[in-house]
């Protein structure tokens, strides 16, 4: 039971990380109609910038503003130089241009930091575990991630539903042309949304640092999973992204934790482990295929 709860928490923690990525991506999809493969690169930039500053200054906390600033800056520059030219182009051009960006960023980061993965020391307050229930102790750092993720989700909810910018964002994702016709500076809105998405991706990247290794290619791994989240949740829906992230996080973690064990009862140890790992990696894609076949627009989009 405690193992199950622990895995559940791990799943939620992975889920909120996915949500931080998916929120930006789904807004960019929904409002600007752009597929941005470079979102994973921004995640990587946040991780590298934050980890670099944290290691150089010796303070984990200074890494946070560094990661956020670097990611937001990268996002705004990408939007200004490349993505701005892709609005209204077909999806093929968008996929290829941002694929080019991935190549550029991966290579640039390799040139700056080398191929060795970086590691960051987590601060002593967040190191260690707390006992949540008798027999269930859980790392404080992971709990913090969950907390931060939920706070961001709540903040986004307020931003989207209670502010003027949020109103424009909602209007933009429903009818772009109308918003422009009403005299709103759509360009500025696009840049803001892109910057916000980049900021969240950078935050996710930096928080992932102490858990996963900071290395080249970390962005693409999470990017593809994030796409699955966005598509399952429904393109453009923040609410959909939130629930789909949690579902996927829990399903993925659950499969990885339990499937090899189940397979080991019918197969030899190492082969069961390999097959179990393979099938659990396939799990989320299978889930996505099923969801799309039942509801081609995603779970949280009303069928028109």
């Amino acid at each position: 039971m405690t193992l199950f709860l622990e895995q559940l928490l791990n799943g939620v923690q992975f889920g909120v990380m996915l949500f931080l990525m998916a929120a930006g991506l789904t807004l960019i999809f929904g409002i600007m109609g752009v597929i941005n493969l470079a979102h994973g690169s921004i995640y990587m930039i946040g991780a590298y910038a934050g980890t670099f500053v944290a290691t150089e200054t010796g303070s984990f906390w200074l890494g946070i503003p560094a990661a956020l600033a670097a990611a937001a800056l990268a996002g705004v520059v990408i939007e200004f130089l490349v993505v701005r030219r892709l609005y209204g182009r077909d999806h093929l051009d968008q996929v290829l241009a941002t694929f080019g960006l991935i190549l550029i960023f991966n290579q640039a980061v390799t040139m700056l930091f080398g191929r060795q993965p970086l590691f960051v020391q987590m601060p002593s307050i967040l190191d260690g575990s707390v006992e949540l229930l008798p027999g269930l102790s859980y790392p404080i750092y992971r709990l913090t991630i969950i907390l931060v993720g939920l706070l961001v989700a709540f903040g986004l909810y307020l931003l989207i539903n209670r502010t003027r910018i949020g109103m424009l964002v909602r209007a933009g994702s429903t009818n772009r042309e109308m918003v422009r016709a009403l005299g709103v500076d759509v360009r500025l809105l696009y840049t803001l949304v892109f910057g916000l998405g980049a900021l969240l991706a950078g935050l996710a990247g930096f928080m992932a640092g102490p858990i996963l290794a900071v290395q080249i290619g970390m962005g693409e791994q999470i990017l593809i999973t994030t796409f699955v989240v966005v598509v399952i949740g429904g393109v453009g829906s923040i609410r959909g992204a939130f629930f789909a992230s949690l579902i996927l996080g829990i399903v993925d973690t659950g499969l990885r934790a339990y499937l090899p064990g189940l397979l080991r009862q019918v197969m030899v140890g190492p082969e069961a482990d390999a097959l179990g790992a393979g099938i659990s990696s396939m799990g989320i894609y299978l889930l996505m295929a099923i969801v799309l076949l039942i509801r081609p627009k995603g779970l949280f989009i009303r069928n028109s």
Binding site: F227, V231, L275, M282, Y285
Partner: peptide, 22 residues
């Protein structure tokens, strides 16, 4: 967009399947 992503998803599924076939 959904078509792009679902074709990617199927390719990923096959990729992981072959990775796991020892």
């Amino acid at each position: 967009v959904q078509f792009i992503m679902i074709t990617l998803a199927f390719a990923q599924m096959l990729f992981f399947l072959f990775v796991s076939l020892k």
